[in-house]
Every structure is written in C-alpha cells, then in structure tokens.
Computed example of a mutant assay.
Amino acid sequence: MKAAALGRGVIAIVGVLVAAAAAYVLFIAVPTTGVELVGVLLVIATAMAGLRMAGGIADRVFPTYNIAEVAIEGPISRDGGRRFPSGPGTTPTDDVVEQIESANEDSNVGGLLVKLNTPGGEVVPSDDIRRAVVEFDGPALAYTTDVCGSGGYWIASGCDELFAREASLVGSIGVIGSRVNAAELADRVGLEYERFAAGAYKDAGVPLREMEDDERVYLQGLIDDFYGQFVERVAEGRELSEEEVRATEARVYLGEEALELGLVDAIGTREDAEQRLAELLEIEPAVREFEPDRGMLDRVGGASRAVAYAFGAGVASVFGDADREIEIRL
C-alpha cells in the first residue's frame, strides 16, 4: 500500500513538473511582449491540468480503489436542469450513464455503489440510468439519504439491493402528467387559438383551448402506459407481484415501513451499504467516486451551449410549443 502511494506521488509530481515546464516555454520564455502575467496564469492552469492527468495515470498504474460510486441527486433530467448556467442543477443523465459505463470498463472496479437522493424526474432519463446499472458487470448496491422517489426508485429497482435510513422517504411509484389550462385567460385578453396541424391529436393538451374528452382519454392512456412500465420494472427488480406494487398507490413510506413492504432490503447508512458490497465481493473496500471525463474545450463548449439554449428557450416561451405542453414525469 505504501509502495502504491509512493508511486502515485512520484507520477503526480512528474506530471506537474512536465506540464509546468511545457507551459513556461510556451507562454513565458517564447513571448517577448507584455503578456508575462497572463503567461504565469496559463502556467498555473496548465500545471493543474497536468496534475489532473497525472492523477488519472496514477490511478490506473497504482489503483487504490475497487468500488466505484456514482451519485444521482436532485430532479432527474437529460440536461440536469442546467439550461441556465447560473441555475441549480443535478448531474445530467448522460454524465451519470458515462460514469457507470466507465466504472464497468475499469478492471480495478468490482462493484458499484449508487447514491440516490432524488424525488424523481423524467421517464426516459431515469430508465437510461437504470439500464446502465443493470448492465454493470458486478454487484450494484444503492443507498438513499433523504428521498428515493419515483424516477429514483425506478433506478433503484435495477440495483441488487437498496439501503434506506429510518427517516428516508421511499416509493412514489407513479407517473404524473400536467398541463396549464389558459383558455379562459386567453378569452379575457382577446387571444384566439388557431390550429394548423396534421393529425387529430398533434395539438392535444394545448393550453389555449379547452381539452376535448377524447384528448383527455388519449393523454390518460399515455400516463397509464408509463405507469404499467414502471410497475413491471419494480416488480421484476424487487421480486414483488405487480399487485403488490400497485397497492402502494404511489405513496411514499418511511424506511421501516418500506422495509416491511419489501421496497428496501435493509435499514442502514452509506457505510452499511459499502460494507455489504465488500462482503459480496470478499474484499477490503476502497471507494472512488467516478466523474464524467470532460476536457476543457468540452466544458467551455457546454457553457456556451447552455447560454444559447437559455436564449432560445426564452424566445420559444413567448410563442409556445405545442409538442411540450404536456409534461410527464415520474
């Protein structure tokens, strides 16, 4: 263990020195204008990048972990709620999937630890994460802190075991769809909805007019279909009957009651889940939190795309979008 730590330290130091030397030549030694101050900053930034790269190399050469951990926190969505760069958000779904896939490809990783602290979110992003968990080649254990509801529980149903605290809120196995009915308001302000669409149900749920009975049946059918998929996945993953899952009526339960209903496997903390995973793998646990592999250009590009999206979303909100009037969430 000491030899591995020493090796990691040597690699890290060498990586920083090489990066700093390269940056000095590129940004300080070569320029002859008054950009030395900027050069110093670039040297520091490059040295930090070198440290990060060296750390990654050191992890591969001298691994100090055998369990990967990923976290799903906050509402689940494709972009992680980061449409506006300054707004709060959670880890984007594609990043979580990337983390799990990276852990699965890492020969040092034998097990997966999934932190769930989420009230749920979008249907397909939740299912994408669940699929990645199911495809992980090794035991995958989940634990929840405050809440594991809806989309979070959809993900948990793909794990081998789920740990919860006594005060954790678990369940909410249901689907909800919603729309704003602004027809009366539109009448008051003199707005009139004029339809140009091909297909009887293309504009079903548009808020500027009253919903027809057949449209309501159609949209409720979509919700029921999503709910049926949710029930099937939970029943399969938790080894419960579909009747038992439906009997929960989309309620949330405290940890102890969730345990009695078979919605969780044990009452415990993160450390308990980690120890259980170590027992299954017959190892001394060493956990590493996996993060998405993103370069500097990708990060800058992501911020630029977020700004562009925010501007576009602001413009689109003025004119409306009939395809997004009905919001369906777990």
Rank of each mutant, 00 (worst) to 15 (best):
G302N: 13
D293V: 10
R209A: 09
V315Y: 11
S317K: 11
V206R: 14
E274C: 12
P285E: 02
G302Q: 12
L208I: 13
G255T: 01
V318R: 13
A286M: 10
E210G: 10
R233G: 09
A250N: 15
D213F: 11
E274F: 14
L208V: 14
A313I: 00
L277F: 07
Q220L: 06
L208E: 15
G228P: 03
M211I: 12
G262I: 00
D225W: 15
Q275C: 00
V231P: 03
G312Y: 01
I267H: 09
E249P: 10
L219C: 05
L259N: 05
R251H: 15
D272A: 06
A306S: 13
P207K: 05
L222W: 10
V206A: 15
E274S: 13
E239Q: 06
A258R: 08
I283W: 13
A310K: 00
E279F: 10
V217D: 04
A316S: 08
F290L: 10
G295R: 00
V318T: 08
A247Q: 03
V264P: 01
E256P: 12
Q275G: 01
G314A: 00
R305E: 06
A310P: 02
G205Q: 05
T248A: 06
V264G: 02
E282R: 13
D321V: 02
Q229D: 10
V231S: 01
F226H: 08
A303K: 13
A310R: 00
A308I: 03
V318P: 05
E239S: 12
E215R: 07
D265M: 04
F230L: 04
